[in-house]
Amino acid sequence: MALNLLHRHVLEDHILGFHGGANPNHLSVVRRPVIFSVLAHAGREGQVREALAKAEDIAIRACGPSEWLAVSQTAGAEHVAAQLSAIPGVSLAEQSDGKVLMAIAGPSVRRILAKCVAVDLHPDVFAEGQSANMMCCHVVANLARTGADTFEIIVPRSFAGSVFEELTEMGREHALTASFLDA
């Protein structure tokens, strides 16, 4: 018996509530990103960081000393794993299913996020390309600034529904809409 197994996104039901087009302030959920936790072993942090910076098709998000999330929306898991595991002193754990990636963008994005995170997101303080773990909507998240008015948020899958609900609730004032990225 060959199994035909369907993959299901945790926000499938949550996102049903949003119909129609995207408003200027919009939350898009990436359906199948590839995400790995990357851990550098003792004494290897510097080398690993340098090597990660050279990785292709992979965005690197800072989590803490010697820990990153490697994220790709274009490359396959094997390709990402192969690149990362070639780096000496690294351990990997795949989190593609364990994490949910969302992008929030629009003119009011900072005003919305000010209700969700405590970190000062002024561009002089949290510049484009910067990322960090932080509390977002009461949940541990990784937040990255990917543009002047664009941020990406990565949260644990089990909390994703809760975070999604809160983000959209806090976005009501600014008519935030939401959809899957491929929708």
Partner: peptide
């Protein structure tokens, strides 16, 4: 413990 950050 920076539980919601770097976990250090």
């Amino acid at each position: 413990h920076h539980a919601a950050g770097c976990r250090r």
